[in-house]
Design a protein around this nucleic acid. Structure first.
Ligand SMILES: [Zn+2]
Ligand SMILES: [Zn+2]
Ligand SMILES: [Zn+2]
Ligand SMILES: [Zn+2]
Ligand SMILES: [Zn+2]
Length: 656
DNA sequence: CGTCCTCCCGCCCTCTGCTGGGGTGTA
DNA sequence: ATACACCCCAGCAGAGGGCGGGAGGACG
């Protein structure tokens, strides 16, 4: 890679140690710094932070180095960390650790060719041709290459996939329903080599490694307290999953400007510049999105472990604040993967493995592990909420400052630091982004133990379970009928008792329906354009939608076979200039249009021309409009019209 | 240590939209 | 008389907003 290029890296740590991410505030600092540096904006998805920077290279080469580091360290064999590594390398833990670093490089096809020509890459390194969606940057078609730290191609699918997952890169192809389907990196590479390869989108995903039934990470203590007994399985499992962390750092460039750069983990020789960077010590913070400027710390390698006492391990510090890699002791819990470099924090942590709750509330029978928790709890009894919202007209107050900050973002500033890389969604909290992202990936971590149906959200599962128990928690105060969801009883009251439910009118046939979704069904059933027309059972006429056909046939019955011009005012738009195939019989319309004689027909026809091909599309457009602007909803509360009394004039008026 | 602050998971809520059986009008 | 059509409506799921409270980092 050329010098002076800014290289973005996704530095990844496999943190199975229950370290948590930084706050939204820290998150913001990333974004802000990025802007200060006048670089591309940074967007994070899930726990992954990616920074796209074009760098000083005037070519439009986009280089993104993503490191998925898979390493074994000489941890004790009963340490329950780095299970993923065990799985991948199959190495015996306890021996000198081995490290497999998979480097993903996104280059243009041209650059790829150049690298091969220049001997920087073996010819055999093939990549995945993907549409790379990097937040804040325009998506680019790139070739994603996977090599190890020596530049040797990595081909083992399991390692590739694990590294891609660690790096938080996911690959999506559109299925026949235009839905994104996630594929493995190996599949992406295979697909890329085929003729007529589909468009593969590579993007970044929230990463929480699913260890699934890996017994090694299963909860080992079984010491859940009564208070915790209601915790669900997913929660328990999740707590023990290895967590992947990503850091993005900045440094000053030669000119002293902020520059997004990366810190590698000491294993990857990317360039001279990169070497220099990752010799810098890493920050001392656990933040995923920590944005240090300049970098102040570096990951020290995992050090040897020596037993401090029977209840804890000690091993080398994973971070230092010292360029010389001063080795700080860390104290590891023997019950779980937690460790800390403060003994006192470990002691405090150990309380979660026992039922010890020395701090008892004198107002109720709850007890807590720490005094702070007790105090916060007592505040809920007394209503003491020291952190008051200062926004005008807002009387909310909170027990903690963090709650206030969050409230302010939700209600007042609408600041949403967490943005989806695949759509416009943004959220105040990262957990919401994770949840949202599952709607892109289709991931459904919460499954019903009764029927196996899986859900993307824990609440969905809980709500679903009621369908098995037959539980109907909500009751209509008027008629005592019971319902499964609150929304249902609300609707019931509006429709049955207060009669305040809005009506939705079909603009084609004036039918009034009680719900928008019923209108949708009506449109699909009655007014959807059918490619193959149906012939009137009494004459030769052909119709492309059911309602028109039925209306027409009605005229035969009421008036013999005499034609009557109460035809539907639906005319199929022409596809391009094709004037043939199954056009509406315009002659019949023209008499009717002349009848109206006020020019409105012309307007009607023109509007129809502007609309998309099919009536179905029209309906969908209307729905979109409604979503954008509630005022556009046709919420008429008119008296129901007599369906049989429709005339062509009525239908025309709908358009006005 | 005690404490403050940060960070996170998960709970609960609403709004929204689809589905399919029931009931009723109609041909 | 009866089969059919179709709106009505509860059931139920998808998505997102807002908050409570527990655990951990760091510091005095
Ligand atoms: Zn407020
Ligand atoms: Zn999205
Ligand atoms: Zn179920
Ligand atoms: Zn009622
Ligand atoms: Zn209609």
């Amino acid at each position: 890679m050329a010098q002076n290029e800014t290289i973005d890296a996704l530095l990844l740590e496999n943190e199975s140690k229950s370290k948590f991410q930084k706050s939204d505030v820290e998150e913001n600092s990333v974004i802000e710094k990025t802007r200060v540096a006048d670089k591309s904006p940074t967007i994070e998805s899930g726990e992954l932070a990616v920074t796209a920077v074009s760098g000083q290279n005037e070519s439009n080469l986009m280089e993104i180095a993503a490191l998925g580091t898979v390493e074994n360290t000489n941890l004790p064999s009963d340490g329950d960390v780095l299970k993923l590594d065990d799985q991948i390398n199959g190495d015996i833990v306890g021996e000198e650790g081995t490290t497999t670093t998979v480097q993903f490089i996104a280059v243009s096809a041209d650059e790829h060719a150049r690298m091969v020509t220049a001997g920087e890459l073996p010819e055999s390194v093939h990549g995945a041709d993907v549409h790379m969606q990097i937040p804040g940057a325009e998506a680019q078609q790139v070739r994603l290459i996977a090599v190890d730290s020596s530049g040797v191609p990595v081909t083992e699918p399991a390692i590739l996939q694990a590294a891609a997952e660690q790096a938080g890169i996911i690959f999506l192809v559109k299925d026949e329903n235009s839905q994104n389907t996630q594929i493995s990196i190996d599949q992406a590479m295979q697909l890329s080599m085929t003729k007529n390869a589909p468009v593969i989108t590579a993007t970044t995903a929230a990463m929480v490694l699913e260890q699934n039934e890996d017994a090694a990470v299963a909860d080992t203590d079984g010491n859940e307290t009564e208070d915790d007994a209601m915790e669900t399985e997913p929660k328990r499992a999740k707590l023990k999953k290895p967590r992947l962390k990503l850091r993005v750092y900045s440094q000053k460039d030669a000119a002293g400007n902020d520059e997004i750069a990366f810190l590698a983990d000491g294993t990857l020789p990317l360039s001279a510049e990169a070497e220099e960077i990752h010799q810098e010590p890493k920050p001392t913070d656990e933040s995923v999105y920590e944005f240090q400027d300049p970098p102040t710390g570096g990951d020290a390698e995992e050090q040897g472990v020596e037993i401090l006492d029977p209840t804890m391990f000690k091993k080398g510090g994973k971070r230092t604040s010292d360029k010389n890699r001063d080795r700080r002791k860390i104290y590891q819990c023997r019950e779980c993967a937690f460790y800390s470099h403060r003994h006192s924090n470990l002691i405090r942590h150990m309380k979660i493995h026992t039922d010890e709750r020395p701090y008892k509330c004198h107002l109720c029978d709850r007890a807590f592990r720490t005094n702070t928790l007790l105090r916060n709890h007592i505040n809920t009894h007394t209503g003491t909420k020291p952190h008051k919202c200062s926004a005008e007209g807002c009387s909310m107050a909170f027990v903690t400052s963090g709650e206030l900050t969050r409230h302010t973002r939700y209600i007042h500033t609408h600041e949403k630091p967490f943005r989806c890389t695949l759509c416009d969604y943004a959220s105040v909290e990262i957990s919401k982004l994770r949840r949202h992202f599952r709607s892109h990936t289709g991931e459904r971590p919460y499954s019903c133990d009764e029927c196996g149906k899986a859900f993307a959200d824990s609440f969905h599962l809980k709500r679903h379970r009621m369908s098995h128990t037959g539980e109907k928690p909500y009751e209509c105060p008027e008629c005592n009928q019971r319902f499964t969801q609150r929304g249902s009883v609300k609707m019931h009251i509006m429709q049955q008792h207060t009669k305040t439910a809005p009506k939705f009118k079909c603009e084609i046939c004036q039918t009034l329906l009680g719900r928008k979704s019923d209108l949708n069904v009506h449109m699909r059933k009655q007014h959807a354009f059918q490619e193959t027309p149906t012939q009137c059972r009494y004459c030769d006429e052909l119709f492309h939608d059911r309602w028109s056909l039925m209306q027409h046939q009605r005229t035969h019955r009421s008036c013999g076979t005499r034609f009557k011009a109460d035809q539907p005012l639906r005319k199929r738009r022409r596809f391009g200039d094709e004037a043939d195939d199954e056009e509406w019989e315009m002659e019949e319309f023209s008499s009717m249009m002349l009848e109206s004689g006020d020019g409105r027909v012309t307007v009607f026809v023109e509007e129809e021309e502007e609309q998309e091909q099919e009536i179905v599309d029209t309906v969908e457009e209307n729905q979109l409009k409604e979503q954008r602007s509630p005022k556009a909803i046709q919420l008429t509360e008119l008296e129901p019209v007599d369906k049989e009394g429709l005339t062509s004039t009525d239908a025309i008026n709908v358009e006005s």
